[in-house]
Simulated assay, not measured.
Amino acid sequence: MTVEQDNAAGADLADRITAVVDAYIDLLTNGTAEQIADLYASDATVEDPIGTDVRNTREQLVEFYSVITNMDERTATLKWKKVAGDTAVFEFTLVTGTSGMRFEITPVDIMVFDEAGKVSSMRAVWQASDLVQL
């Protein structure tokens, strides 16, 4: 592979990663748990937040994201993102609401991607005190 081919391949992966992060934010607002799980590789891991049990099956991912997608209200807003190599780091705000209660959290997610542009691991940086009742 030439330097130009290597740079083009890296740019292509960066474009795919950027598109997946944007889709992830959109799906947190508008999608289903299954659609979010589709962004992940079949052997992906999710540690959200860091320090909790790692989820590593599609069923666990769908169950995890169903907590968000089953809310009466949910809005995710991307604050910033950085992509380098096979990794994206981004901060977003998620506002959820159900049963007359509303919550806001602003995590920083670290996603590593495989060569197909699927998320192979996601680790979320936040702690319980970051979850604020509105």
Results as ranks from 00 to 15, higher is better:
127 Q>H: 14
17 I>A: 02
38 D>F: 13
36 I>T: 10
56 N>M: 04
132 V>M: 08
121 S>Y: 03
33 A>C: 07
74 R>F: 10
24 Y>L: 07
124 A>C: 13
84 A>S: 13
33 A>E: 06
114 D>G: 15
76 A>R: 05
51 G>W: 12
123 R>Y: 01
59 E>F: 02
98 T>I: 05
102 R>L: 03
7 N>I: 11
8 A>E: 14
3 V>K: 15
42 S>A: 10
133 Q>N: 05
42 S>I: 01
99 S>N: 13
17 I>H: 00
79 K>A: 09
113 F>D: 06
30 N>V: 04
133 Q>P: 06
25 I>T: 00
83 V>T: 04
114 D>P: 03
46 V>H: 08
14 A>L: 05
60 Q>F: 05
73 E>C: 08
65 Y>H: 14
27 L>K: 05
55 R>K: 12
50 I>H: 14
20 V>C: 14
32 T>H: 03
40 Y>P: 09
85 G>K: 03
126 W>A: 08
62 V>D: 05
24 Y>R: 07
22 D>H: 13
131 L>F: 11
19 A>K: 00
63 E>P: 00
51 G>Q: 02
40 Y>Q: 02
101 M>I: 01
24 Y>M: 00
79 K>N: 02
54 V>L: 05
76 A>P: 10
46 V>Q: 03
90 F>Q: 15
108 V>E: 15
46 V>L: 14
23 A>P: 03
11 A>R: 01
15 D>V: 02
94 L>M: 04
105 I>E: 14
72 D>P: 04
6 D>G: 04
1 M>I: 11
77 T>E: 12
